[in-house]
Design a protein around this nucleic acid. Sequence first.
DNA 1: TAGTGGTCTAGACCACGGC
DNA 2: CCGTGGTCTAGACCACTAC
Lengths: 256, 256
Amino acid sequence: MVITPFMARRDQGSARMPMHLIISEKLRKQIESDVYAPGDQLPSEFDLGQLFNVSRTTVRRAIANLINQGLVETQQGKGIFVKEQQKISFSLSNPLTFFDTELKRQGRTGRIQTILFQRFEAPREIRNRLRLNAEQIHIYQQEKIILSDDVAIALDIAYFPEHIAQALGEILQVEFTYRALEHHGFPIESARVSIESRPASYETSEYLNVSLGAPLLVYRYLAWNSDSVPLVCGETISRADYTFYSADLNVTQMNI
Amino acid sequence: MVITPFMARRDQGSARMPMHLIISEKLRKQIESDVYAPGDQLPSEFDLGQLFNVSRTTVRRAIANLINQGLVETQQGKGIFVKEQQKISFSLSNPLTFFDTELKRQGRTGRIQTILFQRFEAPREIRNRLRLNAEQIHIYQQEKIILSDDVAIALDIAYFPEHIAQALGEILQVEFTYRALEHHGFPIESARVSIESRPASYETSEYLNVSLGAPLLVYRYLAWNSDSVPLVCGETISRADYTFYSADLNVTQMNI
DNA sequence: TAGTGGTCTAGACCACGGC
DNA sequence: CCGTGGTCTAGACCACTAC
């Protein structure tokens, strides 16, 4: 039987429903009720077109809906597959997250891969965040990819005052940021952090191997030592389909 | 001059770049360099097709890229417009977020609109989270929309043990959850929370008026009183283009 | 009525994976 | 080689907005 938009209207209140949505919703329900389990292959675009009596363009629109919802992924030449869902948790309660420790605790390997480490003139915004004085005109920027079980799950962009980057040197190339600071003479006393979500830009989507616009978690940080001297600021941009952050809050402590 | 995929290849290393990406990247750069300011209207799909010498389908694909990146929004019959960017912050340091207080502090109005309040048999997962005993078989579920300046920015789904929901009654219909508990005999002592990001499902996208797959922030919570009795659990699902969470961390305090 | 975006078709060619 | 998804075209009709 052919499903018409009119029939869909009966299903979903008075709003008219386009075919691509009818199809993606039908497939979504089948995925969520395990008709298609994680890892399973969906029928090909051609077969789905036959099944729902629509053109391939419309099928592709429906599949795009599912990709945007993070439910399936496509592999050229192979097919459409239901995604596995399992997120890695990072704790805010530590209070500073040692990414590698958390990964190991959850039975995964952790590794970083530096893709950029350069000295350059600090732009105004970074100068303010790191409270640089008039003589400190240069900073070091480091960009690194964080891999868990050899999958790129996050991209970290960090900015260090010149004297700190020079003191740590090579260590930053292989160590996670907080751990490198803690263990080499720059203990962290406090930090101001925020968490937001941003859709992947083209550049980020290439690094993390996700589709354009896929949800990413952004953990922004600014860390100080006990003399309130800023040690580092930056952001960790992680794949939202692989990561989340958790915390224990307590009313008796007024600051986290 | 016509832009060919080959020219794009020169621009972007050796990777071949499809026209829809070339177009969306070009527009993205123009948006980010304020050629098109927030609120501005982009050329129509027809004009963009002429401009880049491609079919309307390809233009639409490029626009879809920009929508997925949260950069523009479309209005049927009117045009394509650059989105305004300004996020509302919610603090984790309070340690419990009073949404209305935070909104007011940032010069916005806050209001809730209950869309569901029902008693029903607790499913296993909720039973475990709220640590219900054998006699407590029913719970109350509340779903409400949080509006800021009359825009729906979040959807909150909360589960209360029966005695608490009955004690609070009507208050929950108009008050924010934490505030209702605090001010009516159920002070919160601690909470376990997590933050993740999920793409909008069809249902959620309708409530929050976002496109299918748009990034959402999910704040999951479980709160206890001083006797470690669970008072409420649930999740606040907010539009990632409107909201973020922040916190101050301190090393001397071992728990947040 | 004219112009805009939203949906959909039928068909073409390409790139990749596996046989 | 065939089957898969990726890109792109030219054109149709509809729904909404503004004048």
